[in-house]
């Protein structure tokens, strides 16, 4: 009897995982198309428009192409690790979605230490890069991996400190509680919920978190890891076909994840910006999706706008600007919370 209950429970969890992962893969596929379209428009081009109406079948064509390409194992590569690397890259990108609350009560694993869990999982992504760089037995790949390791470890610190501030004002590590907490306050009572969200009082932390997120996902302008002009494609240079596609998938999935986290931690997650009859009628998860869409488009906008950072400037920004800034802001918020003017009771 107990076993049957456990089995049903497991089946529900598996169904939940499928319900998250399948739309996620579709989202990644269409994010690549949206990226090419948006950057095309920004640069006054049309973007892909040949495959299907408006180019809508382009991601599927790309996927089929990658599936049919041969996967080449370099002769002197460390075989097992070479195959393991893309998996190590994709695994944390997928696993972190377990604790993302899509709507009130709509979360796969409502765990107490959700924020810590996300922080821990996003820090594993670097293993895929390092292992890929080392196992490829190629100088370019190795250089890319070293750059990436240094960059990701540096920005993780700033990111972690920014999250500490969010944790301080929320008083909880549970992501659902963090969202719920943002719906309380003077402005929320007046119906202007969007002024109660964390982005306003924690604006510097939002900037630090988002920029660190761009650096953490190795996106432009922090993409020295795969800088074409210097090290060709960095850690991915020896990968082809589907094994390359896994890196690609992981990168885009991480982008969506950072967008989701930014929306949840700073922009009130599933909450409507203004509480009115019309806005409240929209299902909560659509609000989250809308916010994620805007933030993920910011990633693309940034890529189309800024030239690549120089490597020493990246390191300087992380260590000498962001980390001191976050440390000071932790103290400022800590003191603010002790005063009678504290917004977070």
């Amino acid at each position: 009897m107990d076993l049957r209950l456990a089995l049903i429970d497991t089946a529900w969890t598996l169904a939940g995982i499928v319900a998250i992962v399948v739309p996620l893969f579709v989202a990644v596929a269409y994010l690549t198309l949206w990226e090419r379209k948006l950057i095309g428009w920004i640069q006054i081009r049309i973007g892909p428009n040949r495959v299907g109406p408006l180019g809508l079948l382009q991601p599927i064509a790309d996927g089929v192409k990658l599936l049919f390409k041969e996967i080449i194992l370099p002769t002197n590569a460390s075989k097992g690790l070479f195959v393991l690397a893309p998996i190590m890259m994709l695994m944390p990108a997928l696993a972190a979605w377990a604790v993302i609350p899509f709507a009130p009560e709509l979360v796969l694993a409502d765990i107490n230490a959700g924020l810590l869990y996300v922080l821990a999982l996003t820090s594993f992504g670097v293993y895929g890069v390092i292992i890929a760089g080392w196992a490829s037995n190629s100088k370019y790949a190795f250089l890319g991996a070293m750059r990436s390791a240094a960059q990701m470890v540096s920005y993780e610190l700033a990111m972690g400190f920014a999250l500490v501030v969010v944790l301080m004002v929320s008083g909880s590590l549970n992501l659902s509680d963090i969202v719920a907490q943002q719906g309380r306050g003077r402005f929320a009572d007046m119906g202007l919920t969007f002024l109660s969200w964390n982005w306003l009082p924690l604006l510097p932390m939002l900037v630090v978190y988002f920029v660190s997120g761009v650096a953490e996902t190795n996106r432009a302008p922090f993409d020295v890891v795969e800088g074409e002009s210097e090290i060709v494609a960095g850690h991915m240079i020896e990968y082809s076909g589907m094994s390359f596609a896994l890196f690609f998938l992981a990168e885009y999935m991480n982008m969506i994840l950072i967008s989701a986290l930014t929306a949840i931690l700073f922009f009130g997650g599933w909450q409507a910006p203004v509480s009115s009859a019309l806005f409240d009628a929209v299902p909560p998860f659509l609000w989250l999706l809308a916010k994620m869409f805007v933030i993920v488009s910011m990633f693309l906008w940034i890529r189309a706008t800024f030239p690549r950072y120089r490597y020493d400037q990246i390191m300087r920004l992380g260590w000498k600007v962001f980390i001191p800034l976050t440390l000071v802001w932790i103290a400022v918020i800590g003191l603010w919370m002790q005063t009678p003017w504290s917004l977070w009771q």
């Binding site: 765990i111 230490a113 810590l116 922080l119 821990a120 390092i130 070293m146 390791a149 470890v153 993780e156």
Partner: peptide, 25 residues
């Protein structure tokens, strides 16, 4: 859960990355 995730965060996420960094070089 706190200890478990901190173990991952500190040792797997940071210490071992730097360790690998050195060992590979």
């Amino acid at each position: 859960e706190f200890l478990a995730i901190t173990l991952l965060l500190v040792y797997v996420g940071a210490v071992m990355v730097l360790f690998l960094f050195v060992v590979m070089m």
